[in-house]
Design a protein around this nucleic acid. Structure first.
Lengths: 203, 203
DNA sequence: GTCTATAGGCTGATAGAC
DNA sequence: GTCTATCAGCCTATAGAC
């Protein structure tokens, strides 16, 4: 009976999800162009031709992965910051946001890191279509930093744009070197980066 | 007469150089896999087939670009730091290194940025072959930071590994957003990042 | 929904003329 | 040294059976 307001996902949705998961992982690891439909199909447990029942083209898979990646990132960070008590300092908010950003990137699936790693090298048309979505997330960060400065928690003459790009860039870069089970955990990275940036490393 | 101890480059060397320049730029912009021999040939002013007089394969072009990229980066940074007076503080050394790193990345050709942008997504075999070269450059940075800490210019309990990866990552990330003639220059970026990291941004 | 089979286009690489 | 011509292989996408 299809009228059960379906409590569980349809077969189609399950496959679609498997394809997206596999694509995100492979895009992240090898890059979009180097990824073959066959790679995605193998990892998703079906044949390459079957993908076209769910997606019209390889590009559409990329766009879906990107869309999910940015949405999840923004969602995680927003949720984490919103969960803080109203009494939280701006510094605490920024730390929480940074931690959530890093955690989403490194531990919560490949959509976000696939997005970040491939964005600069994909066809311009697709970049343009997804730039707006990115801008929204960046705006969240602008607000975080500006509010902190307005409250006097960041000194008045700081260049917030470069600061934002530097902080997020340094965190994003962890994609290139972080390994699960390695010498440093996600908490420690977020902690070190934020504390260093706020308090300085000078002895 | 070929015995003039050749003051100018041979025709072959000129073409080889043109190919490498074109390849570095295209690898940087579109990525290694998405770059066609034809793209390189067009930018270098010859036909795709002619490339094989100079290189045995596309992979060999990549390896040459990588080798040059890392060598130039290390050379620039070393030269800049060595040019400082012996009286320079460790902080000045680190700033100079950061500035030179950034400058090489953003203003001095595409070899270094092609390397940095593609490294994580190329075949593992090539990664391994070039990892040693990278390690040498990273060691330069380890030394810079450790010397600074030993001299008391970085506080004693700092996690230098994460700090190094954070700083270099934040600088490397500028590849993704820096535009020549944009609102912020290279000097300003290096200055903001280093000063923020050393002195902190807390108000 | 997923399969197999294959069309159609592109690209890295080679061969031989000049 | 560089060209043209071409081969061989691969990969996206489609068609039709089940």
């Amino acid at each position: 009976m299809s009228s059960v307001a379906r409590a569980e996902a349809s077969k189609s949705e399950v496959s679609r999800q498997r394809i997206l998961d596999a694509a995100a992982k492979t895009f992240r690891d090898k890059g979009y162009v180097a990824t073959r439909l066959q790679d995605i199909a193998e990892a998703a447990g079906l044949r390459a031709g079957s993908i076209y029942y769910h997606f019209a083209s390889k590009e559409q898979i990329l766009e879906a992965v990107f869309e999910i990646g940015t949405r999840r990132l923004r969602g995680s960070v927003s949720d984490a910051v919103d969960a803080l008590p109203a009494s939280a300092t701006h510094r605490e908010r920024i730390f929480t946001a940074a931690h959530s950003h890093l955690s989403t990137l490194l531990a919560q699936g490949d959509y976000t890191s696939a997005n970040i790693r491939n964005f600069g090298q994909i066809p311009e048309e697709i970049q343009i279509r997804h730039r707006e979505q990115r801008r929204v997330y960046e705006q969240d960060w602008r607000d975080l930093l500006e509010n902190a400065r307005a409250a006097g928690e960041i000194h008045a003459d700081a260049d917030l744009r470069v600061l934002r790009l530097f902080l997020l860039g340094g965190l994003n870069w962890a994609i290139e070197w972080y390994r699960e089970g390695g010498p440093v955990g996600i908490d420690a990275i977020a902690e070190t980066c934020c504390r260093s940036l706020f308090d300085g490393i000078a002895g």
